[in-house]
Nucleic acid binder design. Sequence first.
DNA 1: CGGCCTCCATACGGTTGCGTATGGAGGCGA
DNA 2: TCGCCTCCATACGCAACCGTATGGAGGCCG
Lengths: 185, 185
Amino acid sequence: MAERLGPDDWARAALAALAEGGLGAVAVEPVAVRLGVSKGSFYWHFANRRALVEAALAYWEAGTERVIARLESLDEPVARMRTLLDLAFGDAENAAISFRLISEVDDPLVGAVVRRVSRRRLEFMQEVLRELGQPEEEARRRVLAAYGGYLGLAALVRIGAADEVPGSLVDLAMAELGLPPAASS
Amino acid sequence: MAERLGPDDWARAALAALAEGGLGAVAVEPVAVRLGVSKGSFYWHFANRRALVEAALAYWEAGTERVIARLESLDEPVARMRTLLDLAFGDAENAAISFRLISEVDDPLVGAVVRRVSRRRLEFMQEVLRELGQPEEEARRRVLAAYGGYLGLAALVRIGAADEVPGSLVDLAMAELGLPPAASS
DNA sequence: CGGCCTCCATACGGTTGCGTATGGAGGCGA
DNA sequence: TCGCCTCCATACGCAACCGTATGGAGGCCG
């Protein structure tokens, strides 16, 4: 829309390319074509391809932080967790990006960000369970199972094994976390 | 070891490259270097890169079939499932390959094989639960949760969130499937 | 020993993507 | 209007990889 492009436009386009074609698709010339400009524009805003990948990863990480900040405004721990699960299971594109990035965790840039974001998410969930009185060890185990289940389910949806995400899966995840399945309101 | 190479050598090397660097790393020249030969050798055994990818996928699919055949020699359904889980959670490289392939399921060749293998694995697990008297619907749901959990756990191990796979996770998976946690004999 | 067949090396052209150089269009203040 | 600054286009060299062409080393068989 804007005639002039900013770094964020490139970051968003890079994330879209990442979701579609993996990290290898985050290439300068294809992304430039996607934005309707040429490489000359890119190398004005960025030093090289690596900088573009960094910007895309930073943009993605910031999105995660935004979600967490939004959740922390909720007083009720159970509501925090349920809203988190609703957001997580509802956003298919973000799940696809997570999946792509995890599969490419060997890349040092990607690995650092993925580890940071995953740790952040796991800590947030564990803190909710801790607030609700679950012992440390059990909370850790349940959070790992839940987050792993989320990632695995994203995989199943991707390959078409699970046709769609039934709403009951959020309840199932809540149960696995030892929380009441229905919102307490 | 063998001075002369066969297509299977190329397929194995391609799978190794796939596990390490993704589908993009399954390139003719790098794999040739990995085998200590040149492209001239490759294009004697294969028509093009696509044929190499097909051979690698076929080799991987055959490995899956071999495991299933080995499991079906076990009479006890519970033992079949437990052995399957032991094999699944124990083989990290195969999990890595599964992960890579799932993330690249958009590729038509990869997609077809991944869907076939996943369906095969899910059907096998579901059949075990059916044999044990679980209703169709519940078996389906539990199998999806278990297979998804397996894939997700592989992801967590990959990013280093779960330092290692505790043996108790097999018991946990068994419990989620509605089966006794300990081996029967 | 001479000819053939198998397996592989070397050399080449074509394509794609990275990064650089250079210049041009448009806004904006002096 | 003149000059500058921002943003972008075009053109180039470079590297990696695909696929082809050609030839060479070694075994086998007459």
